[in-house]
Design a protein around this nucleic acid. Structure first.
Lengths: 230, 230
DNA sequence: ATGAATTTTTAACGAATGTTAAAAATAATT
DNA sequence: AATTATTTTTAACATTCGTTAAAAATTCAT
């Protein structure tokens, strides 16, 4: 009876179903409360399950959270690859807005990831206090490299990284903290109105910078290609 | 002995000193942990005081936090008035960078406010769950109006609000979540290096938009005044 | 259908949370 | 100096937290 290794092997049948239910519930709870405020009992209730069952599938709360962070990072990298690929032959402005649309679609189908990022990104000083926290820098790092690899950029490398970081941080705030940001403007976080606002705000703020790093010193005038495959 | 109204009047002598110590300690703790994770005992320890003493000065944790949020909002509004006033006769780019410098100085002397904002801005859905949360929309609203009042802007009103909101949200992320953002770039949050990065990133990303709302459709070329007093 | 293996629930633990009441210590007043 | 008022500490409370161990229920193989 002392099978408390907390790692049911991979060939089992019924358990993977409830495991997935638990993970899905945990993502929901972790997307609504910062790590410390999200409790195992909340997750259990959200999964329709008694809370100690979670410890049957995950050794502890920290590893559950970290596993979710890992998943989120993977999903986000994979999606970004697709989105970059989809706009490689577009003009700058057009491609940028298409990229944003893909991002917004993703967030509409799957709102948890950016919320979890936004909720736990601000923990001050004590970097390793939050499990999985160490993956966030790596995530942004990867997206940076992906962008640099997929899109033909002529600007100085520091400017490129500056742009990518700023853009992603803004996206995390706009979409990860949408209830607050939307309410500031008298909108509803899930509304079409807010979605349109985010799209045009990202375009208005970041398009000049994007043009600059794609074609330095000529950003005022011409329409430019966004990509020439490396 | 049942003086448990928890509001020592305003003429008392020694109490206001420890009250201020407690508030200062609370700001520190609330700037390091999100509301729910910050505990009365942490605050007591940071103040060098037994934790129930906090309840002698504040009826409960929620009102302590809300009082701090109110203070922060006031300080931020007051500071913004000064900063706008200081750049009213500057050229756009110059004035904008001076404004950013003032903002960075403020944050260096007084890092807690933006951290507290960043830490608690992302709480999902349940708006009124976090005490003082209701002030955040009001804060951004006020800064918006201040900006519109102090700086002569010609762009459409929606674009102006879009700019102001985006800028402030970015500032909250850059400075309020600085440990994470800095570490992503291999910097230290409190370093001169990071400070310089923030300044040039804000300039690079937001200067085009600022020029556009100050002088629409001519943003590529001329140097413009940032202000003509109303 | 019986017995073994797996999955789920129940009960309980030690620790930490916010808050309260009373005792102790300090400061102020007379 | 004695008494009162104010400030601070001590002790304790009801909850909630994450986790564990054992019992119960379910599923699976034979």
């Amino acid at each position: 009876m002392n099978t408390r290794t907390s790692k049911p092997a991979q060939k089992e049948k019924k358990s993977i179903r409830t495991r997935e239910i638990i993970v899905r519930a945990a993502r929901k709870v972790f997307s609504e409360h910062p790590y410390h405020a999200a409790s195992m009992r909340m997750i259990g209730k959200a999964a329709g399950v008694e809370h100690p069952l979670i410890n049957y599938y995950f050794p502890n709360k920290a590893e559950l959270f970290e596993s979710i962070i890992r998943d989120i990072c993977d999903e986000f990298i994979t999606s970004n690859e697709e989105w970059f690929e989809a706009v490689k032959n577009s003009k700058t402005a057009e491609g940028f807005l298409d990229y944003i649309d893909n991002l917004l679609d993703f967030n509409q189908r799957n709102p948890e990831p950016l919320r979890i990022l936004a909720l736990n990104m601000s923990q001050a000083e004590h970097i390793s206090q939050i499990p999985g926290y160490q993956h966030f820098p790596e995530l942004i790092e990867k997206i940076c490299r992906l962008f640099e690899k997929k899109i033909a950029l002529k600007g100085p490398i520091d400017q490129i990284r500056m742009f990518v970081n700023s853009f992603n941080i803004m996206v995390i705030s706009f979409l990860g903290a949408s209830p607050c940001i939307a309410q500031v403007q008298g909108m509803e976080a899930g509304s079409k109105h807010y979605r349109e606002w985010v799209k045009s705000a990202l375009g208005f703020i970041f398009l000049p910078g994007l043009k600059e790093i794609i074609n330095p010193r000529a950003s005022g005038e011409k329409a430019q290609k966004k990509k020439a495959p490396r």
